[in-house]
Design a protein around this nucleic acid. Structure first.
Lengths: 138, 138
DNA sequence: TATTTGTACTTGCAAAACGCAAGCAAATTT
DNA sequence: AAATTTGCTTGCGTTTTGCAAGTACAAATA
């Protein structure tokens, strides 16, 4: 089991107990950018997560209801992962990370474009993106 | 040296390279709640960080300009840690974590009170708190 | 002034987590 | 039927963590 003991009742601490490692938020990032990913899609990401670590994180995130599996429409061999509502609700947090990083470092062009869009209308971006991500749930 | 190699240019990944572990955001939380902390103050926190881990994280956060040291007014033996502007700018992120945790779990009463205040006027809360935290810089 | 206490760390070591490579079973393609 | 793809698991060496003890210096106490 990937279920860990809580260190305290603090909301920050409890949140970190779930996704506070070097990889979980990158998995969630991939799902926010791609809506749905296969196991292989995650492995293709730039940061090159190890396959055993990926399996462990996916299990952890699923146990904590942040992601869920669904059948791939084309093939039984493939598994699709998507964000649950709880996972989608991490979008504002993800946005703030991007804004912070934008303030203190140089972003790659394609990410910079997204951040500029967010800066223009943060609430609008969240609403639109949330709607897009929710479509996948159905 | 605590300086690690970047895994990619992704803003999420780069941010996680700096504070994406189980302890850094708890240190930052303590500084946001208390404005200034000594080494001993951090050790007193509920989560009971190990002293060697604390020293390593404080160094990492200082190297990345998120916190800085200052002389304690009363004693040469004591060291005060505070957030830099870069650290203070993590406040919106910290707030979103609290809001997310509030949505999916039960917060301790004193933290719940803060979250309710945030919900009433998020921007106002950020402005006020930022101003409070900046005072310590001077 | 000598001694004890407080504060900020460092060190040693066992345990856990990580990272890489290889392996494996079921599904799919050729 | 054989080869390939896909989603994992397993082994194993390395790194990080966590706990306990130790150290150096400042400050308080006797």
């Amino acid at each position: 089991m990937a279920t860990t003991k809580k260190r305290s009742e603090c909301p920050i601490s409890c949140s970190l107990d779930v996704w506070g490692d070097k990889w979980s938020l990158l998995i969630i990032r991939d799902l926010m950018l791609s809506k749905q990913c296969t196991y292989g899609d995650f492995l293709k990401s730039e940061e090159k997560i190890a396959t055993n670590i990926l399996a462990a994180r996916l299990l952890m995130l699923e146990e904590n209801s942040i992601i869920s599996k669904l059948n791939h429409p084309d093939s039984k061999a493939k598994v699709l992962y998507k964000l649950t509502q709880k996972g989608i609700d991490l979008l504002p947090l993800m946005i703030e990370i991007n804004l912070w990083a934008d303030k203190y470092s140089t972003l790659p062009a394609e990410r910079k474009a997204i951040v500029e869009e967010i800066k223009k209308d943060k609430e609008g971006f969240i609403k639109t993106q949330t709607k897009e991500l929710k479509k996948v749930i159905l």
